[in-house]
Amino acid sequence: MADGHTLDILAAIDMQVNAGEAVAILGPSGSGKSTLLGLLAGLDEPSTGRVTLLERDLGAMSEDDRAALRAGRVGFVFQSFQLLPGMTALENVALPLQIGGRDAAREQAAGLLAEVGLGERLDHLPRQLSGGEQQRVAVARAFAGEPEVLFADEPTGNLDADSGRRIMDLMFGLRDRIGCTLLLVTHDQQLAARCDRVIRLDGGRMQSAA
């Protein structure tokens, strides 16, 4: 709402992503990409319309049910990393495993951190890590539960080109290994090209699906 008028952030979106598919949502700033991602992942609710995730209608579920659906089955990578500042790298990665009630969460998390090249930095707090390293922790956390769907919101947006490339290699490598569905929000054409399909968004509307 702005000045009493209703503002449509997204409209006329009709899309489907199949299991195992990698889809990029491409568009300029303010086109509604991140909002769409939030809706698809059940992190926000649409004022109208219907979103289905893992064959469940998100609109019919409570926030707690949506959280339970995400637990262990959905992973996230954010542009601003979203690591918890008071927790070490290891604790951040172990968190989704602990929430999902998995055993040996810390051992698994340590293994994943070693895989992303941070085996020596387990006890470091986020502020003691560089941007690239923080995002690698975030990637490790996203894959910790071996999710069925991975949502990534501009994962390289806060990184230099070199670090960005390494993060994407890491992400796609891990995805190939576990075979999860990927939804990637980006404004980087080259990055989008690495996906199976690209959905273009402008002014909150779908322009095309390629």
């Binding site: 992190l43 979203q82 956390r141």
Partner: peptide, 19 residues
């Protein structure tokens, strides 16, 4: 502020309200 972020991240990762 930190707590708000923490709650949001935890919920994203699937933590229930009761948790």
């Amino acid at each position: 502020d930190e707590r708000a972020r923490e709650v949001a991240v935890m919920r994203t990762l699937g933590a229930s309200r009761r948790h």
